[in-house]
Design a protein around this nucleic acid. Sequence first.
DNA 1: AGTGATTAGTCACTTTATTGACTACCATGG
DNA 2: CCATGGTAGTCAATAAAGTGACTAATCACT
Lengths: 189, 189
Amino acid sequence: MGLRHAVLAALLDEELSGYQLAKAFDLGVANFWHALPQQLYAELAKLEREGLVAGREVVQDTRPNKRLFKVTETGLAELERFVATAGRPSFIRDDLLVKVQAADHVDTDEVIAQLLERAAFADAKIELFGGLLRRMRGDRSEEEFLRHGDRVGPYLTCLRGLAFERGNRDWCRRSAALLRERRAARTRR
Amino acid sequence: MGLRHAVLAALLDEELSGYQLAKAFDLGVANFWHALPQQLYAELAKLEREGLVAGREVVQDTRPNKRLFKVTETGLAELERFVATAGRPSFIRDDLLVKVQAADHVDTDEVIAQLLERAAFADAKIELFGGLLRRMRGDRSEEEFLRHGDRVGPYLTCLRGLAFERGNRDWCRRSAALLRERRAARTRR
DNA sequence: AGTGATTAGTCACTTTATTGACTACCATGG
DNA sequence: CCATGGTAGTCAATAAAGTGACTAATCACT
């Protein structure tokens, strides 16, 4: 069960509504998990039934009421239990990699275009993560924050997301350039 | 539909049996996809029914017979079509990241242990990928191979896998060291 | 007064992925 | 001779994830 614990972990630092949670998960909470709103509402309902999170109604006059959720003691215990279980390693599972794998047998123009698109997307995420990190550490240096700040968990996962996107960007640009060069060489022949 | 195209891409370069395919996918085909044997057998059967791959029986006297699959013209066309469709970006989806996200609220000893375990696993994959890359490029340099070799697709995806695992390794070691330092500081207080 | 975007959430359905058990055959080591 | 392990594959069941369509209210424009 993956989403379950991702939701619990996301709710540790702040009380959130399903909707806010959905926004955080939309493009990946600091790149550590991704899910659509429907999944989150469903998961929250399940977690509440099982007593791992507690919701409270917040009446809003200017917009629809919402329910804010926080992790209960039971929920924290469940997370504790989860942390102690061994997890299998993760893999990149990406359509784009499949496309590059097939690059020698299919039209490379499309692949090149998508690599560049992805690189641009990575650029955007790199900026986003950079901003998040700056906001988290405030005026402290990274060294200083990581040593003495409280709540470094989200900072660390964000660092991983940042490095991942840098890796994506570099690999995408390099691969695109290479495929383009090869295509040019082929047509010249 | 993800697995479908991953299987087609994997079969482009060589004819494989379900079993061989399963081994290749077991720990991630050059880190570009992962699946269990049962899924692969099921997917191969489906692909064959739809005419995207063709299987042929190979009788072996010393061990059980096997069926080798290759991509058909129709299958190649399907891949071509797939390559032209836009894919959404990928995310890391990893239990370990969830655990680190929660690190400020749970027992860090477990998290540290798992980070180090993962780092060791990453080391192993780095060596594995290094070997795969050397074998693919033969006696040529990487530059030379990427420019003039045929079938650079698998090489490129392997490079991505390598960079990913290096990222994993570095992040895991750094995070583990940091959490350990913080724990030490806390107990001294 | 109407359009579209944002907030907030729900229902129904399908596709994918994971788990566990199972068949068979051969080779090797003790 | 019997256990172990590798090759080759299948079946059944469940759990998890993803898709599409939908309600309903408010706000900012035009």
